[in-house]
């Protein structure tokens, strides 16, 4: 029971956390905490097979699937705090409290009697005993779940599949389109500029500097720009003094005066760096 009394508060707190954290990733992490704790409880409850399955399948596979989808959707997509449905949150909490209260109170009244224990059932080993049941009494349900899994897999493929409605543009067509765009709107013909490549470090999230010293927004991925995780090239430029100091070189005075101001470019901060 020690394990229970240690883990139960953790699990309840983690579960409550799911309700309150704003980022989905954090919710997934908290759910992982609940699930692993549950696995431990399964072990305590003489269910070693489920302990393994809970960790391998549930936490390892299903929860990872959640994280994959989160990555696709956007890791930091977060809920707004404002409730859109009038009275929904209040009612949910009231009904939830009533439900939980009733359930706990009702269960508290019960006395389940002495625990029989699984020593006898697990005599020849828990996995063997489960296998015996699964392939005798529950064999039909077991086979049916295989059909269910196949259906689910096909369903997921069907849902994720996107029909190509227009023919794929070949190299020639792409080139012709580029020339056309250039003729019509003056769009640059060549490839986009590479992101920042500096003497001290290279990074895809740091824009390249144009000849006049301003950062080129085209050089960083627009997803990074949309997330606001683009680093500031001028910020590094600021640190050149420090580097020079370390190297024992003094910069020419007029170049310092020509450096672009600090706020130009993106809104990168040191906090971001730490995160």
């Amino acid at each position: 029971m020690t394990a229970f009394w240690v883990l139960a508060p953790v699990m309840v707190l983690a579960a409550l956390g799911i309700l309150f954290v704003r980022k989905a990733v954090h919710a997934a992490m908290l759910l992982a905490v609940v699930m692993i704790s549950l696995a431990v409880l399964y072990a305590v409850l003489d269910a070693p097979f489920l302990f393994a399955v809970q960790i391998i399948v549930y936490t390892g596979a299903i929860l990872m699937l959640f994280l994959f989808v989160l990555m696709l959707v956007g890791v930091d997509a977060s809920d707004s705090v404002v409730e859109t449905i009038r009275g929904q949150r209040l009612l949910a909490i009231v009904v939830g409290l009533l439900f939980g209260g009733t359930l706990v109170a009702g269960l508290g009244q019960l006395s389940l009697g002495t625990v029989v224990g699984l020593d006898e059932a697990n005599d020849g080993g828990n996995i063997q005993a489960l296998a015996n049941l699964l392939f005798s009494k529950y064999v039909f349900a077991f086979e049916t779940t295989s059909a269910l899994l196949i259906t689910a897999a096909i369903g997921a493929m069907v849902l994720a599949h996107r029909e190509r409605l227009t023919p794929k543009a070949g190299q020639a067509a792409t080139a012709a389109q580029r020339m056309k765009d250039y003729a019509e709107s003056g769009k640059h013909l060549g490839p986009l500029p590479a992101p920042g490549v500096y003497a001290r470090h290279n990074a895809v999230d740091t824009p390249a500097l144009l000849p006049d010293g301003t950062p080129s927004e085209l050089s960083v991925n627009r997803v990074l720009a949309a997330r606001g995780t683009v680093r500031s090239a001028p910020a590094y430029a600021e640190k050149v003094d420090e580097v020079e100091r370390q190297l024992g070189i003094s910069p020419p005075v007029e170049e310092v005066a020509q450096r672009p101001s600090r706020n130009q470019g993106s809104t990168a901060t040191d906090e971001e760096e730490q995160a």
């Binding site: 409550l16 409850l45 859109t84 009904v95 359930l103 508290g108």
Partner: peptide
């Protein structure tokens, strides 16, 4: 085993409320 059952009920209720309040 009663504490386990009660823990199960609490977790279930929290899950319910989560479904009702979260929008993601």
């Amino acid at each position: 085993t009663e504490p386990y059952i009660i823990l199960s009920a609490i977790l279930f209720t929290i899950g319910c409320v989560g479904v009702l309040t979260r929008r993601n």
